[in-house]
Amino acid sequence: MLLEPGRQFHTHRGAIPHDDLLGQPEGIVVRSTGGTDYLALRPLLADFVLSMPRGATVVYPKDAAQIVMYADVFPGARVLEAGAGSGALSCALLRAVGDAGRLVSYERRPDFAEVARRNVEAFFGGPHPAHTLRVGDLAESAERGMDRVILDMLAPWEVLAVAAEALIPGGVVCAYVATTTQLSRTVEAMREHGAFAEPAAWESMMRDWHVEGLAVRPGHRMVGHTGFLVTARRLAEGVTAPPRRRRPAKGSYPAAAEDTATDTPTGVGGEGAPAV
Rank of each mutant, 00 (worst) to 15 (best):
S105Y: 04
G136R: 06
A92L: 10
A130D: 09
R109N: 02
L94P: 08
F124A: 15
R95F: 08
A88Y: 01
D99C: 10
P156I: 01
E107P: 10
E81A: 12
R54W: 08
D99Y: 11
R118D: 15
D63I: 09
D111T: 07
L93C: 00
D137T: 12
A92R: 03
E143P: 06
Q66V: 14
A96V: 00
A65K: 02
R54T: 11
F123R: 12
A116F: 02
M52P: 06
D99V: 12
K62H: 06
F124G: 04
A88G: 14
A65H: 01
R54C: 13
S86Q: 10
R109D: 04
A77S: 13
V120A: 13
V104P: 05
P61E: 00
G101A: 04
R118S: 14
V59E: 07
A130T: 00
V115Q: 09
E81T: 13
S105V: 03
V135C: 13
R117G: 04
S86Y: 10
V58T: 06
T132E: 15
R78Q: 11
V79Q: 01
Y70S: 14
R108M: 11
C91W: 00
A56H: 08
T57N: 09
G101I: 02
F112S: 13
V68W: 01
R148S: 01
G55L: 03
G125K: 07
R95H: 03
F124L: 07
R108A: 15
V120Y: 07
Y106F: 09
E143D: 11
A130M: 02
L80K: 03
G87N: 05
A77M: 01
V73I: 09
R108E: 13
N119L: 01
L89W: 00
V97P: 02
R78M: 01
